[in-house]
Structure formats: structure tokens, C-alpha cells
Amino acid sequence: MPIVEFKPRKTSLPQLEPDDLSTDQQYLYKICIGIQNGTITPNLAKRDPGKMSHARWLTTANRMLRLYIATKNSSLTQIILTEFILKVYAPVWFEIKTKSYIYDGARHLWKAINASRGFPDNVKHITNKVFADNAYFAHPKNLLLAMLSDTRPYIRELAARIKKCRMQTNKMIRVFRVLFLNLDADDYIDLIDWQKTRITEPPLTFNIINETLNNIVKRSLKF
């Protein structure tokens, strides 16, 4: 399909090396930048956005963006989908690509929620349910890992509650449940109500002695 004159739309992608990406990933990165700049290179215009597959959302996003730059009068639905890819899906996808440790998960979840807040209520009704049903990284265990790796010292201090968890003598079997999600949280640490949640130690810190844990709180957790 030929490229038409289209309205540039903003995106916010992390800096990365395109050579580190697969062909389909490069396409998504470059077409997002192209739509933001309002210019699609002849080479990108000729490239295949990738095969459509229900198992590969990335190529679906590629095709949606390719359709946008080839449509003169985009429908409202098409514009909303394009905006969602540019403002939520692609930025978070590439953030995950560049920061893929388990302790980054809670921050990625919050960024996706935060980025989607500017959409109409009928859209948020859909996205918020998806966030709530899949909020595995908002579990206290994963939040505590994120907090241990936070760049802010006072957040790492809050994560020191892990030591308090170790003092518990309750040997109940721990069931991993998706908790009620605070979709209005101003920071990832507020995604849950800590006062109403039973806090247990993350398995990844079981073998970390208190002295080492104190050093992590001082300097931040890094693998």
C-alpha cells in the first residue's frame, strides 16, 4: 500500500541499538519513530511488517501502524489503536527489551498503567481489566525485589521489611494470588495496599543473609 500524508503522533521509546533487534522488532522501532517524525523512508515503506499471527502481538502492532500511514481518513478506532501502540505498547515493549530482569517487572507494569491513563474511559475499561487480571508483578514478592533495586534510597529502606518477614514463624503454604490493583497509583510501590496484604519474603532473597541485605539496601540490588 502506498504511503499517504498522515498526522504525526508522539511516541516515547528508549534509546537502543537497532542491530540488537530482530527484523520485526526493528520494523516496529523504526515505524514508531517515522510516525512521530511524520516521515517514512522509502526503504521502510517497502519492508514487510511481518506475518500476522495471534501468537505474535508485535507483528500485529506493525501491521496496524503500517495501515495507519497508508490510510487517508483514519477511523476513530484506528487512531485509538495507533495511539495505544505508540504510547503504551511499543514504549513498554522496548523498555522490557532493555531492562529485562525480574526486579524491573513491577516498574514496567506501572509504566503501562500510567501511559494508558490518557485514553477515553471506554478504552480504559478494557485495558484496566487486562492490567488487573495480569498483575503478577504487583505481587508483594515482586514489588519488594523492585524496591531493592530502586535508585531511591528511601524506597530501598522500605524493602528492608524483608527482614521482618523472616521473623514470622507461620509455616502456612503460600499461595500466589493476583491482588487487587490500585490503578491510580502514583508510583509502582503503591500498586497494592500493603496494610491489607500478607507480606512474605521473595524466594530469590532466601539465601541472602541480613548483612548482605543491609548492603543491598545501601547500594541497590543488581545482578
Score class of each variant (00 low, 15 high):
94 F>H: 01
176 F>C: 07
42 P>F: 14
13 L>C: 06
212 T>G: 00
171 K>Y: 05
172 M>Q: 14
178 V>H: 15
216 I>C: 08
76 L>R: 14
90 A>Y: 00
173 I>Y: 08
83 E>T: 10
38 G>L: 11
40 I>S: 07
192 I>N: 06
189 I>A: 02
43 N>T: 15
143 L>Q: 00
20 D>A: 10
164 K>S: 10
89 Y>K: 04
39 T>H: 12
205 T>I: 13
143 L>E: 00
74 S>E: 03
33 I>A: 09
38 G>N: 06
52 M>H: 14
38 G>M: 08
78 Q>G: 08
161 R>G: 00
38 G>Q: 06
33 I>C: 05
170 N>C: 13
25 Q>Y: 08
32 C>N: 02
188 Y>S: 06
14 P>C: 12
94 F>C: 00
14 P>L: 07
104 D>S: 15
214 N>L: 10
153 P>S: 08
60 T>G: 07
195 Q>D: 11
116 S>G: 03
11 T>W: 03
194 W>G: 05
117 R>D: 10
167 M>E: 15
33 I>V: 07
103 Y>R: 06
95 E>G: 04
8 P>T: 11
101 Y>M: 12
165 C>K: 09
78 Q>L: 14
1 M>H: 07
178 V>G: 02
21 L>T: 01
196 K>L: 09
15 Q>F: 01
159 A>P: 02
131 F>R: 02
141 K>F: 06
109 L>R: 09
167 M>K: 15
76 L>F: 08
207 N>K: 13
107 R>S: 14
170 N>L: 10
14 P>Q: 08
28 L>I: 05
61 A>I: 01
27 Y>M: 05
79 I>G: 01
160 A>Y: 07
162 I>E: 03
107 R>E: 14
190 D>A: 09
125 H>T: 03
175 V>C: 04
16 L>K: 03
17 E>A: 12
67 L>V: 03
161 R>N: 08
121 D>Q: 14
180 F>P: 15
149 S>E: 02
178 V>M: 12
150 D>Q: 09
156 R>I: 12
145 L>N: 06
29 Y>W: 15
190 D>R: 11
100 S>H: 14
152 R>K: 15
158 L>K: 15
160 A>S: 11
21 L>K: 05
138 A>M: 07
136 Y>R: 11
151 T>I: 07
39 T>M: 12
205 T>G: 01
151 T>V: 11
169 T>D: 05
212 T>E: 13
221 L>Y: 14
97 K>M: 04
65 L>F: 05
57 W>D: 06
81 L>H: 02
152 R>L: 07
83 E>I: 04
143 L>S: 00
216 I>K: 13
4 V>N: 11
94 F>G: 00
66 R>V: 04
63 R>D: 00
104 D>Y: 15
33 I>H: 08
212 T>F: 04
17 E>P: 01
47 R>T: 02
138 A>P: 06
27 Y>P: 04
180 F>G: 09
142 N>T: 13
184 D>N: 14
78 Q>V: 03
111 K>T: 11
151 T>Y: 08
19 D>L: 04
154 Y>P: 00
222 K>N: 09
7 K>A: 04
134 N>H: 13
76 L>N: 13
16 L>P: 05
164 K>P: 00
217 V>M: 02
